[in-house]
């Protein structure tokens, strides 16, 4: 084994387990201190999905569930780069995507919000980063929805992501938000992140990726945990 050690969670930007304003954390957050673990081969390896053949429309949520017409809502294209803390890009890594439709309704059977389902929109997709760590997918801008955490609790517009990266220390599940959303300042899930990390979850409107007469563009970069193998550099 080499002496590569992956960085731990950076609690300057990562949310704590317990954040009482987000009520579900109260009985689900571990209460005892985490036990430090020396990383072994199990932590320094992880699943690779190179042999999983993505469907031809997996990267286009605006088209991958069409039954009888285009889904309703604002078509967007989201792109960015997956890197680690060392600034190295992470090629050929899988990104899984899920979200509500433009009315703020999830296909999920448990979601009973009184907003319409869209017969032409599932809200699930995935894509891989290319050889330089870049990704891009198309979707419909998700709507806000109420969620019962407290009176008048509304989730800001967001897209859910799941990433694997280099090994299981890199595992990341997160949510991307949209610039200027007035609901962010009231959302306990977003505010569970320390102030220093919050901006990192807000995508940027990007005219350069916006497609004329077709879709608005947003940029969102992911930074996974880095390691001690190379000097830090500014990229």
């Amino acid at each position: 084994m080499s002496d590569i050690i992956y960085n731990k969670f950076d609690w300057e930007v990562q949310p704590p387990h317990l954040h009482p304003d987000y009520k579900s954390t109260v009985f689900r957050a571990p209460t005892k201190p985490l036990i430090a673990l020396k990383q072994s081969l199990a932590e320094l390896s992880g699943p690779v999905f190179g042999d999983f053949n993505l469907g031809p429309l997996d990267h286009d949520l605006s088209k991958n569930s069409i039954v009888n017409g285009e889904p309703l809502g604002e078509r967007i294209v989201v792109h960015g780069k997956v890197m680690n803390e060392n600034g190295q890009s992470i090629p050929n890594t899988l990104i899984e995507i899920w979200q509500a439709n433009s009315c703020g309704r999830y296909v999920h059977k448990v979601d009973q919000h009184d907003a319409p389902l869209d017969p032409n929109f599932l809200g699930a997709g995935r894509c891989m980063t290319d050889s330089e760590g870049n990704y891009k997918f198309y979707t419909i801008k998700p709507g806000a929805y109420p969620w019962g955490n407290h009176y008048n609790a509304w989730r800001p517009n967001h897209i859910h992501f799941s990433l694997f990266g280099a090994n299981i220390t890199n595992r990341l599940v997160t949510q991307m938000y949209f610039p200027g959303d007035p609901l962010l300042q009231y959302d306990p899930i977003f505010l569970g992140v320390p102030p220093k990390g919050r901006e990192l979850l807000i995508s940027k409107f990007d005219l350069s990726i916006t497609e004329d007469n077709f879709a608005l563009g947003y940029r969102f970069d992911f930074v996974l945990r880095g390691n001690n193998a190379t000097p830090f550099e500014n990229i």
Partner: peptide
């Protein structure tokens, strides 16, 4: 570079992450 902060998987991950188990029309 700073790590991207984590956010909850939420209650509605099933059709995105475990679709076939929950009988959604998307390959697992």
């Amino acid at each position: 570079m700073k790590q991207t902060p984590s956010q909850t998987v939420g209650p509605y991950f099933a059709y995105g992450l475990t679709p076939e188990q929950y009988l959604y029309d998307f390959r697992s």
